[in-house]
């Protein structure tokens, strides 16, 4: 086990290195670049753009730029944004917490609701409720988020004026209540999709547990229904959900890109999209490396958990 872990970690470092190399290369080789945004600026000419490229070191061979970037990264220096010149890590941390707030809330809602709906659906399989939940989940999964978000804004902000149309806080307010007020709509819109995912997984996971021997034994022993449900069924059905949660962790980093755009939420997804749009390579690379670390850890965790749960799968 220990050896396997060390091996996997070693492999992960290699993968991380490859991801950084490939990411850096395709990013820099892609047509465009950080200076193309200045193309039509009055008074700026090709001569200015060429001079800036030299000053920013963008004219150096790509491999030299990469080694420079990697060397600084290994010394803990993530570089500075091409856009506002601030340290990449500081920028990421700022946006990360906005995303965590939004994703955390919506995740909490979707886990609670999704779990309940999933269990209920499994216990009353093929009931009206189960059908409605299934259809509801499928439809929720299939609605494009940006479309749904715009409709929600139209309804709740414009027509009913119950909720703000977007943003994270009212400037100058910043109270908890104000946060919550702004959080409701994006969190619920995002949660809709996640409730669907969680309820589907929870349903099938509960079905798996329902027919296992220990449940029958518990029932045969005459334990009260809710005790069997809570102690035996739900507890065991939740186990695979941990894996799912682990696998969903990295998606937090990518942020809820669409929801953040529609609801003007200053999170990671928006930052990532803007950074790609303006070819802000240092920030893009920073987010890429962080998300790669998350994905690799998540995958490793999932593999370990599967191995622990299923002894037939030997770790090699």
């Amino acid at each position: 086990m220990g050896r396997y872990l060390i091996g996997r970690l070693g492999q992960s470092v290699v993968v991380l290195f490859l991801v950084s190399l490939i990411g850096f290369m395709i990013l820099n080789l892609a047509p465009g670049g950080p200076l193309s945004q200045f193309a039509l600026t009055p008074g700026m000419s090709q001569a200015d753009i060429q001079r800036l490229a030299v000053q920013m070191g963008l004219d150096r061979p790509l491999i030299v730029q990469y080694i420079d970037w990697l060397g600084r990264l290994l010394r803990g220096d993530w570089g500075e944004s091409f856009r506002d010149g601030r340290p990449v890590l500081a920028i990421i941390v700022e946006h990360l917490w906005a995303t965590l707030l939004l994703m955390g809330t919506s995740m909490a809602i979707s886990i609670v609701v999704g779990t309940l709906v999933g269990i209920a659906g499994a216990i009353r399989r093929y009931s009206i409720f189960d059908y409605l939940a299934t259809v509801g989940a499928m439809v929720a999964l299939s609605i494009p988020t940006f479309w749904f978000g715009l409709v929600a804004i139209y309804l709740f902000a414009l027509k009913l004026a119950w909720l703000p149309a977007g943003n994270m806080i009212t400037i100058g307010d910043g109270s908890v209540l104000d946060y919550l007020h702004h959080l409701v709509m994006p969190a619920l819109v995002l949660a809709l999709v996640n409730v669907a995912i969680w309820s589907r997984y929870m349903r099938s996971s509960t079905l798996d547990v329902l027919h296992q021997d220990f449940v029958r034994t518990a029932r045969a022993k005459g334990l009260p229904r809710y005790r069997v449900l809570v102690h035996h069924i739900v507890r065991n059905a939740l186990l695979p959900m941990i894996t799912l949660g682990g696998l969903q962790l990295p998606t937090i980093l990518g942020g809820a890109l669409v929801a953040e755009t529609v609801f003007t939420w200053p999170g990671m997804g928006r930052l990532f999209l803007d950074s790609i749009g303006y070819s802000d390579y240092p920030v893009v690379m920073g987010i890429l490396m962080l998300s790669a670390i998350f994905v690799l850890l998540g995958n490793l965790l999932a593999d370990l958990l599967v191995a622990l749960a299923d002894p037939r799968v030997r770790l090699a």
Partner: peptide, 8 residues
């Protein structure tokens, strides 16, 4: 490949 966000 999984490590690259699909949006990237």
């Amino acid at each position: 490949f999984l490590a690259f966000p699909s949006i990237f």
